[in-house]
């Protein structure tokens, strides 16, 4: 959340073989967002490491009215940063977990 004002955390992780995750996103620093958004509300969503892209999820969040179009890049970046961290952590785990 250091630069986008948004925080994304892992809500639920399947086992390593499962590429689907549950992530949770909320606004940590409202001043860093340009458009209207819902304060104090966390949005939990599924994310498939193999088929989903952060940009696509951000677009759906904007379409659903959670964020303004002007913040979609920040939402996508926050999701991408967290997903990259999760992928790195998984790469470190022994094969077969």
């Amino acid at each position: 959340a250091e630069d986008t004002g948004l925080r994304v955390e892992l809500a639920e992780e399947g086992d390593c073989s499962n590429s689907s995750l549950a992530l949770r996103l909320w606004v940590e620093d409202p001043k860093k967002l340009k458009g209207k958004h819902k304060d104090n509300e966390a949005i939990e969503f599924s994310f498939n490491l193999e088929t989903d892209t952060p940009e696509e999820v951000a677009y759906e969040m904007v379409k659903s009215g959670f964020f303004h179009e002007s913040d979609s890049k920040a939402v996508a970046k926050s999701i991408r940063d967290r997903v990259n961290l999760i992928k790195k952590a998984r790469d470190k785990k022994p094969a077969g977990c």
Partner: peptide, 27 residues
């Protein structure tokens, strides 16, 4: 619970719930 709202968009489900107090204090 009544505080949780489910929104569907393009086949994806978003579950909206209040941010836990503890997480708000962190920021």
């Amino acid at each position: 619970s009544s505080l949780t709202q489910v929104v569907h968009s393009a086949g994806r489900r978003f579950i909206v719930s209040p941010v836990p107090e503890s997480r708000l204090r962190e920021s």
